[in-house]
């Protein structure tokens, strides 16, 4: 999976498609989009994260030749999915051209997700990663966990 952060607008089409497709219970996420206030300048940084245990890149859809639900739903082509091992695969060439790298973090996320334009502060800011946490600084989701 390739995530081009230059293209992500934080719209959540991916995570809602994922939850609808897989009937993921409220409170749990196979992937979600973090809305992290930027430490360097005004604005929000949008960061899709994938769960290392529960995200299977839409195995049920792959059976039919369909892209994962999140990729299918993404309105800006920020998510690109393909077989990284296949020689000449688009995803591989794109990843190389854009110097995409796994997220540099100690938090558990899927290791086979490569990011374009990650920020050096992302790794520390994501805390629990895909799961909800009271530590999150996002301006969404965890609003319900404070207070």
């Amino acid at each position: 999976m390739l995530v081009d952060l230059r293209r992500c607008i934080g719209c959540h089409a991916c995570s809602v498609a994922c939850k609808t497709e897989h009937r993921v219970p409220l409170g749990e996420f196979r992937m979600r989009v973090r809305w992290l206030p930027r430490p360097d300048r005004p604005g929000i940084s949008f960061l899709p994260l994938f769960h290392p245990d529960t995200c299977d890149f839409g195995a049920n859809r792959a059976r039919y030749g369909l892209a994962p639900a999140c990729v299918d739903a993404c309105p800006t082509d920020a998510l690109v999915f393909g077989d990284g091992a296949a020689a000449g695969a688009t995803v591989t060439r794109t990843a190389k051209r854009l110097s995409a790298k796994p997220l540099e973090t100690s938090t558990r996320t899927r290791a086979d997700v490569l990011y374009v334009s990650q920020e050096d502060w992302h790794g520390e800011a994501i805390h629990s990663g895909v799961e909800l946490s009271p530590e999150d600084t996002d301006i969404i989701y965890e609003q319900g966990r404070r207070g």
Binding site: D56, V71, G82, T90, V91
Partner: peptide
């Protein structure tokens, strides 16, 4: 995308 089921 070229996804093959056996790769998943």
């Amino acid at each position: 995308l070229g996804v093959r089921p056996e790769d998943v």
